[in-house]
Design a protein around this nucleic acid. Structure first.
Length: 930
RNA sequence: GCGCGAUUAGCUCAGCGGUAGAGCAGCUGUCUUACACACAGCAUGUCGCUGGUUCGAAUCCGGCAUCGCGCACCA
């Protein structure tokens, strides 16, 4: 037996915690790869272990969970796999900060102790976000939770590295990389963010080394935003077609402060119209200059160390921090009379994403992934004749993805950090005097033993005097390298026979924000291409996901991007505590509009309240109360015990709501399936509130309470109403489950009396009853609703108290409408407090109108309220005048249109006919109002 | 510089070729036995500007403006 009733108010906190525990204990979302049902898999974007839940996670979670819960209802064998990311730089930064506070450094601690500490930190603090994700009611399989640094993922990383190396897609070499002095590591191009800063442009004079030019010039003038790099200049470049300098190309300049002679070279890169048309060239400290240097075979002079201080090549500036050196160089240049001028200058400076300091382009030996072959495979997949793979939703993001893959640079994957996957390369240091140099030979292997075997094969076993000594590369891999394997490493790859991999790969959809299309999405597709794209396999078979659903950002109440540094984040947990997780989820999804636009969450920082989330909470309460109402009126029966209603017994309202139910079912399923989640949420909201609660529940109240000593007919009708009510409500709860899982679970249990161990989340999506669909009925029901509205409006105009009964008369020349109104007269009476409802034909209306009546119109329907006294004539006149004005405006517009011969001639006949009908109606309306 | 998105009621946004919509907020009533986190009713717009296509444009096309984002970047 179901509970006889629900508590008067809904308590989200208790309910949510209870169902979360019940689902998890029962393993409700722990799928069996051997179970039937078409597979549907999603791996969640693993949040950083350092993180705590922010609104972006809540949003992403709400969207993913809505999709997977829907697919589960549809009978798919759903795997939704959770996990976290080890976040190499972020974790290391936190730990180094801690060490610094203790007056220590990681070098003092040593690698092993440092890593021990890191794991301890992870064990202690790494679970925060996972616990917070649980509070959203995420229907993931917690038993399959993964971590990018766990044993399985680590093995996958090693395997991936080894195979890429075998394929010739990984190389090591000295290149100009983005060096982050704050983290002491190289970072990839993607981790560099250009920021506009107010700086200066210093103009310097470089004297000609070999005497004045033919025209008497003794020097060239160059401009720079980074004077400290001057120390590493190895040329000055001019444009080859620049007449000012043509004669000087090939001559030499003396570099001030340093004294080095450097050539004047001609290079297309130089824009003759900018500044003086002369560019100082520092190949070791600027990417463009590096390229110029390559073209002209210029030497590379590195003047800076990895910690951001000047090195021995900087001469007297050695030891200075790069920014101190800047000042010092300018002062020295001024002292030498080589400073021409300084002007303020706003320009872009590359900043490290993580370190928040300017990155330094620095020559360094690093590991790289050769990306072009992988990118090409992805571009081909996107252009696959069988359809793009993956399919982006909204489609426009595929262009962003493709463009990035089209002009891609190699990916620097080594990081000079300790927390992460250590690079599986062993240097044969015995070949280079016991240390790792840029030229030390190395082997790439799965472990030390394999490395030794390889090295011995290559270099022999060594001798007693000179044993073969191997040392593993101390560096770790970019965190995104392991993230890039996530969709298959978590399913068991590289074990091709792994049950999960066989069952759920490729996954169905990736749901994520556009900000990590390059970082993550493209890396996953490229790496999948490297390992899972066998010859002849179509892209859809190896791409890690069929669809990529890209959603927007959650912005704050002022439309600002939420960010930690700006401190404008809105804490999801605060909102969950105040309104419930279901309310937050529903609010977020409901805000989603069409094509992945950003959503804005309104928020009052004084009171920590949000009208948007509050509205969703109110909706939850509405559903709670509607179910309470049902429980009070179902006589202790359940949807199952009541059974399906007899179609022959259905009343007008029943047929209407069942038609609406079937339609909403179809629409909602289609919307969920096509990621139109905002539309799905809004559609259900409107159906539940405006149709089920506002109209259907009101309409059946009389039938549910047939009074004392009811007739057998009344009892039968009561049962019909109960059957329909139970059906509508229980199916509505199923449809809402993906959006509001806890509330719907709770209400469904209340309504059905299902056992504790049974879950709404695991029920089947209700079959839409196509036979119940009835367009004509829905249309005429709208007319009925409209008629009731007119009556209510007239009563309001007349100033009638809601409780005061009054007679109502309808006049319609349309027999069907008249019949409908007669059929529904008892309903109308109930909903308008009518003491009587009369439906007249136009002929009979004359007499009625002769009395003192209030009149209103809806379409061609007249509504009359015969009232003696109590009528506020002024407001009535006001209203009627408004009606007339509106009708006249319409008449003018429509007749103008009809008078245009082009319209009548060219517009489709049905449009013209509709226009004529509308005109006739408007004229009738104006007439009536007068 | 190149590209993308946005611009509709006070606010948040739907609508994307046939007479401008919703939800909040606002105003007026109401304890009508599920719900005042509610019910009923009422207001509210040169659909950014400007050309064009069309019988007809918020909707399609061209320009412009403003805001936002991405990519590239001149020292």
């Amino acid at each position: 037996m179901p509970e006889a009733s629900l508590a008067k108010t809904y308590d989200p906190a208790g309910t949510e915690a209870r169902w979360q525990a019940a689902w998890e204990t029962a393993g409700a979302f722990h799928p069996d790869p051997a179970a039937p049902g078409e597979p549907f898999a999603v791996v969640i974007p693993p949040p950083n272990v350092t993180g705590s839940l922010h609104m972006g996670h809540a949003f992403n979670t709400a969207l993913i969970d809505t999709v997977v819960r829907f697919q589960r209802l549809r009978g798919r064998n759903v795997l939704c796999l959770p996990g976290t990311d080890h976040a190499s730089i972020a974790v290391q930064t936190i730990l180094e900060k801690q060490l610094k506070a203790e007056g220590r450094s990681r070098e003092e601690l040593g690698r092993e102790a440092f890593l021990e500490r890191a794991w301890a930190w992870k064990a202690e603090s790494g679970g925060t976000i996972v616990g917070q994700l649980r509070r959203l009611g995420y229907s993931v399989d917690w038993r399959r939770e993964r971590f990018t640094l766990d044993a399985g993922c680590s093995a996958a990383v090693v395997e991936a590295f080894v195979r890429l190396h075998q394929q010739g897609l990984i190389y090591r070499g000295e290149y100009l990389v983005n060096w982050c002095p704050a983290s002491g590591s190289a970072v990839s191009d993607l981790e560099v963010e250009m920021k506009e800063v107010d700086g200066h442009l210093w103009h310097f004079r470089y004297p000609l080394a070999d005497g004045p030019a033919a025209d008497g010039r003794t020097h060239l003038e160059v401009a720079t935003t980074r004077p400290e790099t001057l120390l590493g200049d190895t040329a000055v470049a001019v444009n080859p077609v620049d007449p000012r300098y043509a004669a000087l190309v090939g001559r030499r300049l003396r570099l001030p402060l340093v004294g080095r002679e450097i050539p004047i070279v001609a290079d297309d890169h130089v824009d003759p119209d900018f500044g003086t048309g002369c560019v100082k060239v520092t190949p070791a400290h600027d990417p463009n200059d590096f390229a110029i240097g390559q073209r002209h075979n210029l030497p590379l002079v590195t003047v800076m160390s990895r910690d951001g201080t000047m090195n021995e090549a900087a001469g007297r500036f050695q030891g200075l921090d790069r920014f101190a050196a800047r000042t010092a160089v300018v002062e020295a240049m001024e002292a030498e009379g080589c400073l021409v001028k300084v002007e303020p200058y706003r320009h872009s400076v590359p900043f490290s994403d993580r370190g928040k300091v300017p990155v330094e382009p620095l020559l360094s030996t690093q590991w790289f992934v050769r990306t072009e072959p992988l990118a090409a495979r992805c571009r081909d997949a996107l252009a696959d004749p069988a359809g793009p793979s993956p399919r982006f939703v909204p489609e426009r993001w595929s262009k962003v993805y493709r463009d990035w893959l089209t002009d891609i640079r190699d990916w620097c994957i080594s990081r000079q950090l300790w927390w992460g996957h250590r690079i599986p390369a062993w240097f044969v240091v015995s070949e280079t005097g016991g240390v790792i140099t840029d030229t030390t030979p190395y082997v790439v292997a799965r472990d030390a033993a394999e490395a030794r075997a390889q090295a011995e094969a290559q270099f022999g076993g060594g001798t007693h005097a000179h044993p073969l000594v191997l040392e593993q590369d101390p560096d770790v891999l970019d965190t995104w390298f392991s993230s890039g394997l996530w969709p298959f490493s978590t399913l068991g790859w590289p074990d091709a026979a792994a049950a999960d991999l066989a069952r759920w790969y490729p996954t169905s959809v990736l749901v994520t924000g556009f900000d990590i299309i390059f970082f993550w999405v493209a890396r996953m597709t490229m790496l999948a291409g490297a390992f899972l794209a066998e010859e002849g396999r179509p892209p859809a078979a190896w791409m890690p996901f069929a669809d990529v659903y890209i959603h927007g950002l959650v912005r704050d109440e002022q439309n600002r991007k939420m960010s930690k540094s700006a401190g404008n984040g809105i804490d999801p947990l605060l909102l969950i505590e105040r309104y419930g997780a279901d309310a937050l989820r529903f609010a977020l999804v409901r805000e989603v509009a069409g094509a992945g636009q950003d959503i804005r969450l309104d928020y009052d920082r004084q009171s920590d309240t949000s009208a948007t989330v509050e509205a969703a909470r109110n909706f939850a309460t509405k559903l709670w109360n509607a179910t309470r109402f049902a429980l009070l009126n179902l006589g202790g029966e359940t949807p199952a015990s009541l059974g399906e209603p007899d179609p022959a017994a259905l009343q007008l309202a029943d047929r209407w709501i069942l038609s609406r139910l079937a339609r909403v079912n179809q629409e909602t399923a289609e919307r969920y399936a096509s990621y139109a989640l905002g539309e799905a949420a809004r559609g259900l909201y409107e159906f539940a509130w405006n149709e089920v609660c506002d109209w259907y529940l009101e309409l059946i109240k009389r039938r549910l309470n047939p009074g004392e000593n009811p007739s057998p007919e009344a009892l039968a009708d009561q049962r019909t109403a109960r059957q329909v009510l139970a059906k509508v409500l229980s199916e509505l709860l199923v449809m809402l489950q993906p959006l509001m899982p806890h509330l719907s679970e709770e209400l469904w249990h209340g309504l059905t009396g299902a056992a504790e161990g049974e879950f709404l989340a695991l029920q089947a999506w209700p079959t839409a009853n196509g036979a119940a669909l009835d367009d004509a009925l829905e249309a005429s029901f709208l007319e009925l609703i409209e008629a009731i509205r007119v009556v209510r409006n007239l009563r309001a105009v007349a100033g009638l108290k809601p409780s005061q009964p009054a007679p109502v008369q309808f006049v319609s020349g349309r027999p069907e409408l008249a019949a409908l109104l007669r059929q529904a007269s008892a309903d109308i009476a109930a909903l308008t407090r009518a003491e009587s409802v009369t439906v007249l034909d136009p002929a009979g209306a004359e007499t009625a109108r002769a009395q003192r009546t209030l009149a209103g119109v809806s379409g061609e329907l007249q509504v009359l309220l015969p009232l003696e006294g109590l009528v506020d004539l002024d407001s009535l006149r006001g209203r009627l005048e408004k009606d007339i004005a509106k009708a006249e405006k319409e008449i003018a517009g429509l007749s103008g249109r009809l008078a245009n011969p082009n319209f009548a001639g060219k517009a489709p006949p049905e449009v013209v006919a509709e226009c004529q009908a509308n005109l006739a109606e408007a004229q009738a309306q104006a007439e009536l109002a007068r």
